[in-house]
Design a protein around this nucleic acid. Sequence first.
DNA 1: CGCAGTTTGTTTAGTTGCGGCACAAACTCA
DNA 2: TGAGTTTGTGCCGCAACTAAACAAACTGCG
Lengths: 404, 404
Amino acid sequence: MNGKATTTRTKLERGRSALGPALELVHTGRAPTRAVLTSELGVTRATAGAVAAELEALGLIRVDSSPGSAAGSQGRPSHRLSVLETGPVVLAAQVHADGFRAALVGLGGRIVATSPGCVAVMADPAQVLGEVVEAGAELLRASGLRCVGAGLAVPSAVAEPEGTALNPLHIAWPAGSPVRDIFAACVRRAGITGPAFTGNDVNLTALAEHRHGAGRGAQHLLCVATGHRGVGGALVLDGRLHSGSSGLALEVGHLTVNPEGRPCHCGGRGCLDVETDPLAFLTTARREPGPEESLLKQAGNLLRTEYGDPAVRQAAEALIDRLGLGLAGLVNILNPDRIILGGLHRDLLEADPERLRAVVADRSLWGRSGSVPILPCTLAHNSLVGAAELAWQPVLDDPLAALA
Amino acid sequence: MNGKATTTRTKLERGRSALGPALELVHTGRAPTRAVLTSELGVTRATAGAVAAELEALGLIRVDSSPGSAAGSQGRPSHRLSVLETGPVVLAAQVHADGFRAALVGLGGRIVATSPGCVAVMADPAQVLGEVVEAGAELLRASGLRCVGAGLAVPSAVAEPEGTALNPLHIAWPAGSPVRDIFAACVRRAGITGPAFTGNDVNLTALAEHRHGAGRGAQHLLCVATGHRGVGGALVLDGRLHSGSSGLALEVGHLTVNPEGRPCHCGGRGCLDVETDPLAFLTTARREPGPEESLLKQAGNLLRTEYGDPAVRQAAEALIDRLGLGLAGLVNILNPDRIILGGLHRDLLEADPERLRAVVADRSLWGRSGSVPILPCTLAHNSLVGAAELAWQPVLDDPLAALA
DNA sequence: CGCAGTTTGTTTAGTTGCGGCACAAACTCA
DNA sequence: TGAGTTTGTGCCGCAACTAAACAAACTGCG
């Protein structure tokens, strides 16, 4: 995901160079007025004015010249900047064990429309992606908005640069499926304009939370989340997703968190993956997993409704301790300034925040790094919004080129 | 180490914007001629010419208009670019368990002069740093060259932004010593011009190897090295050191690599630190550590000279297996495209490269990432050169401002 | 109400880094 | 020796800024 800067940028292809950063500031809500846009960009008021006017002319943002009231400090009130509601959108799609969902997402992570979540997931990626893209295309036709790209979140590591899903185990797709190409083909077939991108769902969750949720403002954001099975991680460095040299970074499932733990298919024992996922929780709490609901929902419900039950509580504490050990290991390696947790890990954090923080502080090497804030994910549909971020990225990088 | 881009860059303070990247290309040897400088920068020949002329006028590089011969392809031969031998230098200093050393380092990582390594290391950081800086100042006076900064490598994690040494255990300094401030004070007192920087030695080794050694061209470079005691790691992402949000990233010593291993002071057991350092090797090989030499040298010698001895070989293989397990864990988290090993780990790699590569491939999740190249460090005095890189960084970022 | 003080938006002029182009220079090869 | 190829250089112009002066829109005080 890191292009080298060797491509010749001719004068014609590059627009106003501050255009992209300015749009990103409005997009992430860090530039609510033109005055702070000026200071954030580090340019003169004249330049900021020109840039804002150009973004408005492109149909991306709205500049409210007459803010009415809502002052506060003295001096001339600044023009308010906001994302244009009727501006272009991107198609965001998500596939997980429960089914799939499509949505239209505008700038600012605003979900404009969503399809009802569909339950049926088949073993054929082409069929599933065809259906979800068609659902998105239907939303698009109904809305009449312009579409500038598409993004897809899958519960699997996605290898770069091929774009293949390496371990889409719990959605029963064949390992190595070329999901990016399949998705791109579906998008083109549906007549949707703009480029198509595919990414791992936890990575995209981290990206979404960094820009619009609990990760806002973090410089080194670590996100760990349990989906329906297994554990995923993601890292956002200086606003950019760090997915490693081949997209496989932060595959944290096989950190050892319990030397006496159960053996794992990876060859080790006591891996984070098998020790802290929903199935581990249910079995540790001595509950029979029911077939009617996803394991994630069963585990979450159990945690929230029956925390008084000693068996449930003990199981939760055991999982918290192991999760804390895994997080401490990651803290020692990555030294993030914020950690956010999703899925069952989020539920575990909320069940006993102090216990988790204590374990992480105790087992990471220095108290200073041990005091790293640990927060729950806050965004609804975060991996859907993250998929949209992927599709918005070219526009944020160079609005003129992307909309041309 | 990552400043946010919110500082206002007025027109007066910024020079030609391609100046820094151009100097970095010459510095790292990636722009041997003006023609490749043109293509690497992605600018026109006119611009590249102006930039090269300006760097020459600044006294940093040399532009050989008459290359004599050494052609090869057809067309007009390009002007050769090289670092100016009589250009400015930086003062590089290094402190480790064996003693300390000072050097003058020019652009391109060229060591201009070194002090003889001094053995005496006292418990008082101010005294040691005073001596090493004075040795460097002496070199500087003798050379008559201009000094534009100073860098120090210490065998301890250095906390950001305070610049304190958190665990300088095996040089008997008090934990939490403000080494950056002490070093900066010594540098000022010695009358040396330019800013002073301090960093962890493994971090600086990685930086040096990335720019001038075995890490050249790697996009995500992981470096793991054993010093005299304990294990350190470092990560260079896109040419920049990743030291985490508070300088404590890649403290990899407490990855679990042997669930049945000996207990570690960190509270876990079988940590990389206590399982793969020189002392662990000597005791596993059932050798009595002698007092006359450093453990690192004893272990290295033993490995190179007595590999035929079954006890030595078995100890080496045990360490290789555990190192491989640790590296595999790091590969799963960081997904680097190259790994370089220093210290005893380098010796272990060279003793049996195939065994180490096989373990890493076997225990990292996918064969693709398992096939990451593992190489030995190649640079002599690499942490010294790395300390110099730290001092050169402001010049590489903005030559005009740094030399003003 | 009016006036000072403050902050922001706008206009204008001026600077500059760099692309585009044309041409000269320095080589290879036939 | 001349065609072909690649590189260096001078010149023009543009576009993205800065700087500075001014206008606008508020608060607060007398």
